[in-house]
Design a binder for these strands. Sequence first.
DNA 1: GTCTCAAAGGATAGTTTTTGTCCGATTTAT
DNA 2: ATAAATCGGACAAAAACTATCCTTTGAGAC
Lengths: 153, 153
Amino acid sequence: MQITRAGEYGVLGLLNLARRAPAELVMIDDVSRQEAIPKSFLAKIFQSLVKAGIIKSTRGSGGGFALAKAPEQISVLQVIEAIEGKIAFQRCQQEEPDCEHVGGCALCSLLGEAQDSLKEVFSKTTLADLLKPKTAPGQNHRRGNLQKLAETN
Amino acid sequence: MQITRAGEYGVLGLLNLARRAPAELVMIDDVSRQEAIPKSFLAKIFQSLVKAGIIKSTRGSGGGFALAKAPEQISVLQVIEAIEGKIAFQRCQQEEPDCEHVGGCALCSLLGEAQDSLKEVFSKTTLADLLKPKTAPGQNHRRGNLQKLAETN
DNA sequence: GTCTCAAAGGATAGTTTTTGTCCGATTTAT
DNA sequence: ATAAATCGGACAAAAACTATCCTTTGAGAC
């Protein structure tokens, strides 16, 4: 139950682009080096993002990648789904439309709810939000987690 | 981004037990057949649930499994974490405590939020809830999803 | 006691997904 | 032309998931 590295790399790569001038063309090699992401892997990830219309690419000498939209208009959900495919918790209604599990459909409902909840978190956050130096007061999850770690150690 | 089959089987297996008389001992073979889950696999899954104290087992002739607590006291989160391990979205603070990603910590925060959101959904729902014939009005996610399917097809 | 039944636990194997790598093709600027 | 850079597909290694099998352990029946 995790985001894949590909998804994570995708977001980090996009944030790298977002930190620059709006239409600046950046080579995969630069992003790869600065974010410590394997180059060939990042290239594949960026390909998906191009297909999804999130970044645009220019080939040839002097080419590279740039965001296709403003960071405010790119949600983390868009990025993750472009890379990993649509978030789909419910096996029932995706692969097995004829859910035969006794009482299984209640589980399907729950999985649907979980999925919606996750999607909401990822869709309400844009790249621009992630670039802001601090999270809003009362929503600082990093601090919360550090506290938890302190408790258990 | 999915629950594993093991997790799903675990919940379905437990629901099977929950539908019976409180302390009735049920053999793995019965559950396996009724829920159409591979027997050996379910055996492994139930082992995890025993270790987690969610079910109790009796060996030997006439033995089997029964819930260790009332269905109202078993949350889906407990079940999933017993089988799949703790839900942990944040690679940063789990495996790589020294998060070096430029701007990566904002992502860590977001993943933390996603994780909490998911956990809440799974922890607020118990086996007893899943046994209820209908979900509460206004929370019928199944209907919601069927509508979505109807739209896209 | 010993026989049988059923779970416990470990080893192992097959499949799928993830995480890359490599290389030739294509496009672009110079 | 040539060099630079992405595109696209094939391929490979590693990890996770999904089982299966077999021996051991514990409990009850006789």
